[in-house]
Nucleic acid binder design. Sequence first.
DNA 1: AATTATAGCAAACGAATGTTTGTTAGTTTG
DNA 2: CAAACTAACAAACATTCGTTTGCTATAATT
Lengths: 194, 194
Amino acid sequence: MITTRKTNKRQLILEEAAKLFKQKGFSGTSMRDLAGEVGIEAASMYNHIKSKDEILELICFRVSSTYISQLAEIEATAAPYVEKIKSLIRLHIRLMIEDGAAVSVGNHDWKYLREPALTEFKQARKQYEKGFAALIEQGIAAGEFQPVNVSVALFTILSAVRWVELWYRPGRELSAEELEDNIITMLLTGLEKK
Amino acid sequence: MITTRKTNKRQLILEEAAKLFKQKGFSGTSMRDLAGEVGIEAASMYNHIKSKDEILELICFRVSSTYISQLAEIEATAAPYVEKIKSLIRLHIRLMIEDGAAVSVGNHDWKYLREPALTEFKQARKQYEKGFAALIEQGIAAGEFQPVNVSVALFTILSAVRWVELWYRPGRELSAEELEDNIITMLLTGLEKK
DNA sequence: AATTATAGCAAACGAATGTTTGTTAGTTTG
DNA sequence: CAAACTAACAAACATTCGTTTGCTATAATT
Protein backbone atom coordinates (compact mmCIF):
# COMPACT_ATOMS: atom_id res chain seq x y z
CA MET A 1 0.00 0.00 0.00
CA ILE A 2 2.12 2.83 -1.25
CA THR A 3 -0.18 5.32 -2.89
CA THR A 4 -3.50 3.59 -2.52
CA ARG A 5 -4.69 5.94 0.19
CA LYS A 6 -4.84 9.15 -1.74
CA THR A 7 -5.54 7.50 -5.07
CA ASN A 8 -8.53 5.59 -3.80
CA LYS A 9 -10.38 8.55 -2.41
CA ARG A 10 -9.62 10.55 -5.50
CA GLN A 11 -10.94 7.76 -7.65
CA LEU A 12 -14.03 7.50 -5.52
CA ILE A 13 -14.70 11.19 -5.97
CA LEU A 14 -14.38 10.85 -9.74
CA GLU A 15 -16.71 7.87 -9.83
CA GLU A 16 -19.39 9.50 -7.70
CA ALA A 17 -18.98 12.73 -9.66
CA ALA A 18 -19.60 10.91 -12.93
CA LYS A 19 -22.76 9.38 -11.50
CA LEU A 20 -24.05 12.70 -10.23
CA PHE A 21 -23.11 14.62 -13.37
CA LYS A 22 -24.98 12.07 -15.43
CA GLN A 23 -27.98 12.28 -13.13
CA LYS A 24 -28.21 16.01 -12.50
CA GLY A 25 -25.77 17.57 -14.91
CA PHE A 26 -22.53 19.39 -14.12
CA SER A 27 -24.18 22.68 -13.18
CA GLY A 28 -26.89 20.88 -11.27
CA THR A 29 -24.40 19.06 -9.09
CA SER A 30 -22.95 20.96 -6.14
CA MET A 31 -19.71 20.15 -4.41
CA ARG A 32 -21.77 19.54 -1.29
CA ASP A 33 -23.94 17.03 -3.13
CA LEU A 34 -20.84 15.25 -4.31
CA ALA A 35 -19.16 15.37 -0.91
CA GLY A 36 -22.26 13.84 0.63
CA GLU A 37 -22.08 10.98 -1.81
CA VAL A 38 -18.40 10.45 -1.07
CA GLY A 39 -19.02 10.63 2.65
CA ILE A 40 -16.90 13.65 3.58
CA GLU A 41 -17.38 17.40 3.79
CA ALA A 42 -17.13 19.56 0.71
CA ALA A 43 -14.02 21.27 2.01
CA SER A 44 -12.27 17.96 2.49
CA MET A 45 -12.51 17.13 -1.18
CA TYR A 46 -10.01 19.85 -1.93
CA ASN A 47 -7.36 17.65 -0.35
CA HIS A 48 -7.85 15.30 -3.29
CA ILE A 49 -8.83 17.45 -6.24
CA LYS A 50 -7.98 20.95 -7.38
CA SER A 51 -11.43 22.13 -8.37
CA LYS A 52 -14.83 21.11 -9.66
CA ASP A 53 -13.56 21.89 -13.14
CA GLU A 54 -10.65 19.52 -12.71
CA ILE A 55 -13.05 16.70 -11.87
CA LEU A 56 -14.91 17.29 -15.11
CA GLU A 57 -11.69 17.41 -17.09
CA LEU A 58 -10.39 14.17 -15.62
CA ILE A 59 -13.61 12.35 -16.43
CA CYS A 60 -13.92 13.72 -19.96
CA PHE A 61 -10.36 13.09 -21.02
CA ARG A 62 -10.24 9.61 -19.60
CA VAL A 63 -13.24 8.77 -21.76
CA SER A 64 -11.95 10.45 -24.90
CA SER A 65 -8.54 8.83 -24.64
CA THR A 66 -10.16 5.43 -24.17
CA TYR A 67 -12.11 5.84 -27.37
CA ILE A 68 -9.13 7.10 -29.30
CA SER A 69 -6.78 4.34 -28.27
CA GLN A 70 -9.38 1.66 -28.96
CA LEU A 71 -10.03 3.14 -32.38
CA ALA A 72 -6.31 2.91 -33.13
CA GLU A 73 -6.32 -0.77 -32.19
CA ILE A 74 -9.23 -1.50 -34.49
CA GLU A 75 -7.72 0.48 -37.34
CA ALA A 76 -4.57 -1.62 -37.05
CA THR A 77 -6.30 -4.97 -37.48
CA ALA A 78 -6.56 -6.65 -40.86
CA ALA A 79 -10.27 -7.25 -41.21
CA PRO A 80 -13.05 -6.26 -43.61
CA TYR A 81 -14.45 -2.80 -42.98
CA VAL A 82 -17.75 -4.36 -42.00
CA GLU A 83 -16.00 -6.09 -39.15
CA LYS A 84 -14.16 -2.95 -38.12
CA ILE A 85 -17.38 -1.00 -37.93
CA LYS A 86 -19.02 -3.82 -36.01
CA SER A 87 -16.13 -3.79 -33.56
CA LEU A 88 -16.54 -0.07 -33.07
CA ILE A 89 -20.25 -0.41 -32.45
CA ARG A 90 -19.57 -3.15 -29.93
CA LEU A 91 -16.94 -0.99 -28.30
CA HIS A 92 -19.36 1.88 -27.86
CA ILE A 93 -22.06 -0.33 -26.41
CA ARG A 94 -19.68 -2.09 -24.09
CA LEU A 95 -18.16 1.13 -22.78
CA MET A 96 -21.64 2.50 -22.27
CA ILE A 97 -22.60 -0.53 -20.22
CA GLU A 98 -19.38 -0.80 -18.24
CA ASP A 99 -18.66 2.88 -17.68
CA GLY A 100 -21.95 4.52 -18.50
CA ALA A 101 -21.71 7.42 -16.13
CA ALA A 102 -18.36 8.62 -17.43
CA VAL A 103 -19.37 8.11 -21.06
CA SER A 104 -22.51 10.09 -20.40
CA VAL A 105 -20.44 12.94 -19.00
CA GLY A 106 -18.25 12.79 -22.08
CA ASN A 107 -21.35 12.97 -24.22
CA HIS A 108 -23.19 15.76 -22.48
CA ASP A 109 -21.26 17.65 -19.82
CA TRP A 110 -18.09 18.24 -21.80
CA LYS A 111 -19.60 21.55 -22.86
CA TYR A 112 -18.98 22.87 -19.36
CA LEU A 113 -15.23 22.38 -19.77
CA ARG A 114 -13.31 25.63 -19.49
CA GLU A 115 -10.74 26.71 -22.00
CA PRO A 116 -8.26 25.44 -22.92
CA ALA A 117 -9.68 22.05 -21.99
CA LEU A 118 -12.81 22.70 -24.01
CA THR A 119 -10.97 23.21 -27.27
CA GLU A 120 -8.68 20.29 -26.56
CA PHE A 121 -11.62 17.99 -25.93
CA LYS A 122 -13.42 19.10 -29.08
CA GLN A 123 -10.31 18.39 -31.08
CA ALA A 124 -9.99 14.93 -29.59
CA ARG A 125 -13.59 14.21 -30.45
CA LYS A 126 -13.15 15.50 -33.96
CA GLN A 127 -10.07 13.36 -34.39
CA TYR A 128 -12.06 10.30 -33.34
CA GLU A 129 -14.89 11.14 -35.68
CA LYS A 130 -12.48 11.63 -38.55
CA GLY A 131 -10.96 8.21 -37.96
CA PHE A 132 -14.38 6.60 -37.72
CA ALA A 133 -15.56 8.36 -40.86
CA ALA A 134 -12.47 7.25 -42.75
CA LEU A 135 -13.34 3.62 -42.06
CA ILE A 136 -16.82 4.16 -43.44
CA GLU A 137 -15.43 5.94 -46.46
CA GLN A 138 -12.97 3.17 -47.18
CA GLY A 139 -15.70 0.59 -46.68
CA ILE A 140 -17.77 2.33 -49.33
CA ALA A 141 -14.79 2.52 -51.67
CA ALA A 142 -14.18 -1.20 -51.10
CA GLY A 143 -17.78 -1.92 -52.07
CA GLU A 144 -18.70 -3.25 -48.66
CA PHE A 145 -21.09 -0.43 -47.85
CA GLN A 146 -23.84 1.40 -49.64
CA PRO A 147 -22.77 4.78 -51.06
CA VAL A 148 -24.51 6.69 -48.29
CA ASN A 149 -23.44 10.13 -47.11
CA VAL A 150 -20.53 9.48 -44.78
CA SER A 151 -21.41 12.08 -42.15
CA VAL A 152 -24.96 10.81 -42.00
CA ALA A 153 -23.78 7.24 -41.55
CA LEU A 154 -21.24 8.25 -38.92
CA PHE A 155 -23.57 10.29 -36.76
CA THR A 156 -26.42 7.86 -37.14
CA ILE A 157 -24.20 5.13 -35.75
CA LEU A 158 -22.74 7.29 -32.99
CA SER A 159 -26.17 8.44 -31.89
CA ALA A 160 -27.92 5.13 -32.28
CA VAL A 161 -25.57 3.79 -29.71
CA ARG A 162 -26.15 6.52 -27.17
CA TRP A 163 -29.64 5.55 -26.14
CA VAL A 164 -28.20 2.50 -24.43
CA GLU A 165 -27.21 4.85 -21.66
CA LEU A 166 -30.80 5.89 -21.09
CA TRP A 167 -32.37 2.53 -21.54
CA TYR A 168 -30.16 -0.40 -20.74
CA ARG A 169 -30.20 -1.89 -17.26
CA PRO A 170 -28.28 -5.10 -16.65
CA GLY A 171 -30.67 -8.00 -16.28
CA ARG A 172 -33.24 -6.55 -18.57
CA GLU A 173 -34.82 -8.58 -21.31
CA LEU A 174 -31.64 -8.51 -23.43
CA SER A 175 -28.11 -9.46 -22.46
CA ALA A 176 -25.29 -7.14 -23.40
CA GLU A 177 -24.32 -9.32 -26.31
CA GLU A 178 -27.86 -9.71 -27.61
CA LEU A 179 -28.16 -5.96 -27.41
CA GLU A 180 -25.02 -5.51 -29.49
CA ASP A 181 -26.24 -8.00 -32.07
CA ASN A 182 -29.61 -6.31 -32.37
CA ILE A 183 -28.18 -2.85 -32.78
CA ILE A 184 -25.65 -4.05 -35.32
CA THR A 185 -28.39 -5.74 -37.32
CA MET A 186 -30.44 -2.59 -37.22
CA LEU A 187 -27.58 -0.36 -38.34
CA LEU A 188 -26.02 -2.62 -40.94
CA THR A 189 -29.02 -4.30 -42.55
CA GLY A 190 -31.79 -1.86 -41.67
CA LEU A 191 -35.32 -2.22 -40.43
CA GLU A 192 -36.99 -2.94 -43.72
CA LYS A 193 -37.40 -6.47 -45.03
CA LYS A 194 -36.22 -6.86 -48.62
CA MET B 1 -53.85 43.91 -31.26
CA ILE B 2 -55.71 42.50 -28.33
CA THR B 3 -53.31 40.29 -26.44
CA THR B 4 -50.27 40.48 -28.65
CA ARG B 5 -48.38 42.68 -26.23
CA LYS B 6 -48.11 40.31 -23.32
CA THR B 7 -48.09 37.22 -25.47
CA ASN B 8 -45.24 38.44 -27.59
CA LYS B 9 -42.86 39.13 -24.75
CA ARG B 10 -43.80 35.91 -23.08
CA GLN B 11 -43.15 34.06 -26.30
CA LEU B 12 -39.84 35.82 -26.70
CA ILE B 13 -38.81 34.71 -23.22
CA LEU B 14 -39.70 31.13 -24.02
CA GLU B 15 -37.78 31.21 -27.28
CA GLU B 16 -34.66 32.70 -25.77
CA ALA B 17 -34.94 30.35 -22.82
CA ALA B 18 -35.03 27.34 -25.12
CA LYS B 19 -31.91 28.59 -26.89
CA LEU B 20 -30.05 29.15 -23.64
CA PHE B 21 -31.19 25.90 -22.05
CA LYS B 22 -29.97 24.04 -25.10
CA GLN B 23 -26.68 25.90 -25.01
CA LYS B 24 -25.91 25.89 -21.30
CA GLY B 25 -28.46 23.59 -19.74
CA PHE B 26 -31.30 24.50 -17.40
CA SER B 27 -29.14 24.71 -14.29
CA GLY B 28 -26.43 26.51 -16.18
CA THR B 29 -28.78 29.25 -17.32
CA SER B 30 -29.56 32.03 -14.86
CA MET B 31 -32.59 34.25 -14.97
CA ARG B 32 -30.18 37.15 -15.41
CA ASP B 33 -28.62 35.46 -18.43
CA LEU B 34 -32.05 34.97 -19.89
CA ALA B 35 -33.17 38.49 -19.08
CA GLY B 36 -30.09 39.84 -20.80
CA GLU B 37 -30.97 37.92 -23.93
CA VAL B 38 -34.55 39.17 -23.82
CA GLY B 39 -33.37 42.72 -23.26
CA ILE B 40 -34.95 43.44 -19.87
CA GLU B 41 -33.99 43.00 -16.22
CA ALA B 42 -34.44 39.68 -14.48
CA ALA B 43 -37.07 41.12 -12.18
CA SER B 44 -39.12 42.28 -15.14
CA MET B 45 -39.53 38.80 -16.46
CA TYR B 46 -41.78 37.96 -13.55
CA ASN B 47 -44.40 40.18 -15.12
CA HIS B 48 -44.64 37.58 -17.88
CA ILE B 49 -43.84 34.24 -16.29
CA LYS B 50 -44.42 32.70 -12.89
CA SER B 51 -41.03 31.12 -12.35
CA LYS B 52 -38.01 29.57 -14.01
CA ASP B 53 -39.66 26.20 -13.54
CA GLU B 54 -42.73 27.35 -15.40
CA ILE B 55 -40.60 28.30 -18.38
CA LEU B 56 -39.19 24.80 -18.50
CA GLU B 57 -42.62 23.24 -18.20
CA LEU B 58 -44.07 25.34 -20.99
CA ILE B 59 -41.26 24.44 -23.35
CA CYS B 60 -41.29 20.73 -22.53
CA PHE B 61 -45.04 20.24 -22.78
CA ARG B 62 -45.36 22.20 -25.99
CA VAL B 63 -42.84 19.84 -27.54
CA SER B 64 -44.37 16.66 -26.16
CA SER B 65 -47.87 17.60 -27.21
CA THR B 66 -46.62 18.39 -30.70
CA TYR B 67 -45.12 14.95 -31.05
CA ILE B 68 -48.18 13.23 -29.65
CA SER B 69 -50.68 14.99 -31.88
CA GLN B 70 -48.55 14.40 -34.96
CA LEU B 71 -48.24 10.74 -34.09
CA ALA B 72 -52.02 10.51 -33.88
CA GLU B 73 -52.33 12.02 -37.35
CA ILE B 74 -49.90 9.54 -38.83
CA GLU B 75 -51.54 6.61 -37.07
CA ALA B 76 -54.85 7.62 -38.61
CA THR B 77 -53.63 7.54 -42.22
CA ALA B 78 -54.07 4.47 -44.38
CA ALA B 79 -50.56 3.72 -45.56
CA PRO B 80 -48.07 0.87 -45.33
CA TYR B 81 -46.18 0.76 -42.06
CA VAL B 82 -42.98 1.56 -43.91
CA GLU B 83 -44.50 4.83 -44.95
CA LYS B 84 -45.76 5.59 -41.46
CA ILE B 85 -42.33 5.06 -39.99
CA LYS B 86 -40.81 7.17 -42.72
CA SER B 87 -43.28 9.94 -41.92
CA LEU B 88 -42.34 9.78 -38.27
CA ILE B 89 -38.64 9.98 -39.05
CA ARG B 90 -39.29 12.96 -41.29
CA LEU B 91 -41.37 14.54 -38.54
CA HIS B 92 -38.56 14.21 -36.04
CA ILE B 93 -35.98 15.64 -38.37
CA ARG B 94 -38.20 18.48 -39.43
CA LEU B 95 -39.09 19.45 -35.87
CA MET B 96 -35.44 19.30 -34.98
CA ILE B 97 -34.57 21.66 -37.79
CA GLU B 98 -37.47 24.05 -37.31
CA ASP B 99 -37.64 24.10 -33.53
CA GLY B 100 -34.33 22.60 -32.51
CA ALA B 101 -33.85 24.50 -29.29
CA ALA B 102 -37.19 23.45 -27.82
CA VAL B 103 -36.79 19.87 -28.97
CA SER B 104 -33.37 19.79 -27.38
CA VAL B 105 -34.84 20.99 -24.10
CA GLY B 106 -37.47 18.28 -24.35
CA ASN B 107 -34.73 15.76 -24.93
CA HIS B 108 -32.32 16.80 -22.21
CA ASP B 109 -33.58 19.34 -19.72
CA TRP B 110 -36.91 17.71 -18.97
CA LYS B 111 -35.20 15.97 -16.07
CA TYR B 112 -35.12 19.27 -14.21
CA LEU B 113 -38.92 19.43 -14.22
CA ARG B 114 -40.38 19.42 -10.71
CA GLU B 115 -43.13 17.11 -9.62
CA PRO B 116 -45.84 16.68 -10.65
CA ALA B 117 -44.74 17.97 -14.05
CA LEU B 118 -41.87 15.51 -14.14
CA THR B 119 -44.10 12.45 -13.84
CA GLU B 120 -46.59 13.90 -16.27
CA PHE B 121 -43.90 14.50 -18.86
CA LYS B 122 -42.47 11.03 -18.46
CA GLN B 123 -45.91 9.56 -19.00
CA ALA B 124 -46.43 11.61 -22.14
CA ARG B 125 -43.11 10.43 -23.48
CA LYS B 126 -43.88 6.84 -22.65
CA GLN B 127 -47.23 7.15 -24.37
CA TYR B 128 -45.51 8.42 -27.49
CA GLU B 129 -42.94 5.64 -27.41
CA LYS B 130 -45.70 3.05 -26.98
CA GLY B 131 -47.50 4.35 -30.04
CA PHE B 132 -44.32 4.42 -32.08
CA ALA B 133 -43.39 0.91 -30.95
CA ALA B 134 -46.85 -0.37 -31.87
CA LEU B 135 -46.33 0.78 -35.45
CA ILE B 136 -43.04 -1.09 -35.63
CA GLU B 137 -44.63 -4.17 -34.11
CA GLN B 138 -47.51 -4.11 -36.57
CA GLY B 139 -45.06 -3.57 -39.39
CA ILE B 140 -43.19 -6.68 -38.38
CA ALA B 141 -46.45 -8.64 -38.10
CA ALA B 142 -47.41 -7.43 -41.56
CA GLY B 143 -44.12 -8.71 -42.93
CA GLU B 144 -42.87 -5.26 -43.89
CA PHE B 145 -40.05 -5.21 -41.34
CA GLN B 146 -37.38 -7.59 -40.18
CA PRO B 147 -38.24 -9.39 -36.93
CA VAL B 148 -35.89 -7.18 -34.92
CA ASN B 149 -36.34 -6.45 -31.22
CA VAL B 150 -38.93 -3.70 -31.12
CA SER B 151 -37.36 -1.66 -28.33
CA VAL B 152 -34.01 -1.74 -30.06
CA ALA B 153 -35.55 -0.59 -33.32
CA LEU B 154 -37.55 2.14 -31.59
CA PHE B 155 -34.69 3.64 -29.64
CA THR B 156 -32.25 3.30 -32.49
CA ILE B 157 -34.57 5.36 -34.64
CA LEU B 158 -35.34 7.91 -31.93
CA SER B 159 -31.67 8.40 -31.15
CA ALA B 160 -30.42 8.31 -34.69
CA VAL B 161 -32.52 11.34 -35.31
CA ARG B 162 -31.24 13.33 -32.36
CA TRP B 163 -27.79 14.05 -33.67
CA VAL B 164 -29.33 16.38 -36.21
CA GLU B 165 -29.61 18.83 -33.36
CA LEU B 166 -25.87 18.79 -32.79
CA TRP B 167 -24.79 18.69 -36.36
CA TYR B 168 -27.21 20.20 -38.83
CA ARG B 169 -26.86 23.83 -39.80
CA PRO B 170 -29.05 25.17 -42.59
CA GLY B 171 -27.02 25.72 -45.69
CA ARG B 172 -24.64 22.90 -44.98
CA GLU B 173 -23.76 20.37 -47.60
CA LEU B 174 -27.16 18.68 -47.34
CA SER B 175 -30.60 20.23 -47.65
CA ALA B 176 -33.22 19.26 -45.10
CA GLU B 177 -34.85 16.90 -47.52
CA GLU B 178 -31.61 15.24 -48.58
CA LEU B 179 -30.83 14.81 -44.92
CA GLU B 180 -34.16 13.09 -44.33
CA ASP B 181 -33.66 10.80 -47.30
CA ASN B 182 -30.19 9.81 -46.18
CA ILE B 183 -31.21 9.05 -42.61
CA ILE B 184 -34.22 7.07 -43.79
CA THR B 185 -32.04 5.03 -46.13
CA MET B 186 -29.61 4.38 -43.32
CA LEU B 187 -32.30 3.28 -40.87
CA LEU B 188 -34.49 1.29 -43.24
CA THR B 189 -31.99 -0.38 -45.54
CA GLY B 190 -28.85 -0.26 -43.41
CA LEU B 191 -25.25 0.58 -44.12
CA GLU B 192 -24.16 -2.74 -45.53
CA LYS B 193 -24.39 -3.50 -49.22
CA LYS B 194 -26.10 -6.82 -49.96
C1' DA C 1 -60.02 63.33 -17.85
C1' DA C 2 -59.76 59.88 -14.30
C1' DT C 3 -58.73 55.26 -13.31
C1' DT C 4 -56.78 50.96 -13.86
C1' DA C 5 -53.59 47.66 -15.83
C1' DT C 6 -49.16 46.80 -17.87
C1' DA C 7 -44.35 46.39 -17.96
C1' DG C 8 -40.37 48.03 -16.75
C1' DC C 9 -36.57 49.15 -13.02
C1' DA C 10 -33.36 49.20 -8.75
C1' DA C 11 -32.71 47.23 -4.53
C1' DA C 12 -32.90 43.77 -1.57
C1' DC C 13 -34.08 38.91 0.22
C1' DG C 14 -32.42 34.44 1.99
C1' DA C 15 -30.41 30.46 0.18
C1' DA C 16 -26.92 28.10 -2.28
C1' DT C 17 -22.69 28.28 -4.93
C1' DG C 18 -17.32 27.00 -5.28
C1' DT C 19 -13.58 27.70 -2.63
C1' DT C 20 -10.19 29.28 1.26
C1' DT C 21 -8.74 29.40 5.84
C1' DG C 22 -7.30 27.76 10.27
C1' DT C 23 -7.12 23.89 12.92
C1' DT C 24 -6.87 19.17 14.54
C1' DA C 25 -6.28 14.57 14.90
C1' DG C 26 -3.78 10.49 13.04
C1' DT C 27 -0.06 8.51 10.18
C1' DT C 28 4.38 8.28 7.94
C1' DT C 29 9.00 9.46 7.60
C1' DG C 30 13.62 11.03 9.26
C1' DC D 1 10.94 10.56 19.53
C1' DA D 2 10.48 14.47 16.57
C1' DA D 3 9.17 16.43 12.25
C1' DA D 4 6.43 16.40 8.34
C1' DC D 5 2.59 15.03 5.91
C1' DT D 6 -2.27 13.53 5.24
C1' DA D 7 -7.02 14.02 5.38
C1' DA D 8 -10.57 15.36 7.74
C1' DC D 9 -13.54 19.30 9.81
C1' DA D 10 -16.17 23.78 10.99
C1' DA D 11 -16.49 28.31 9.78
C1' DA D 12 -16.34 31.74 6.78
C1' DC D 13 -15.43 33.99 2.12
C1' DA D 14 -17.33 36.56 -1.85
C1' DT D 15 -20.44 35.67 -5.47
C1' DT D 16 -24.42 34.18 -7.68
C1' DC D 17 -28.86 32.21 -7.51
C1' DG D 18 -34.28 32.68 -8.07
C1' DT D 19 -37.47 35.59 -6.47
C1' DT D 20 -40.03 39.57 -3.97
C1' DT D 21 -40.85 44.22 -3.00
C1' DG D 22 -41.78 49.00 -3.84
C1' DC D 23 -42.00 52.15 -7.20
C1' DT D 24 -42.56 54.64 -11.75
C1' DA D 25 -43.84 55.67 -16.34
C1' DT D 26 -46.68 54.54 -20.04
C1' DA D 27 -50.84 52.51 -22.20
C1' DA D 28 -55.64 50.97 -22.07
C1' DT D 29 -60.15 51.30 -20.37
C1' DT D 30 -64.03 53.65 -18.52
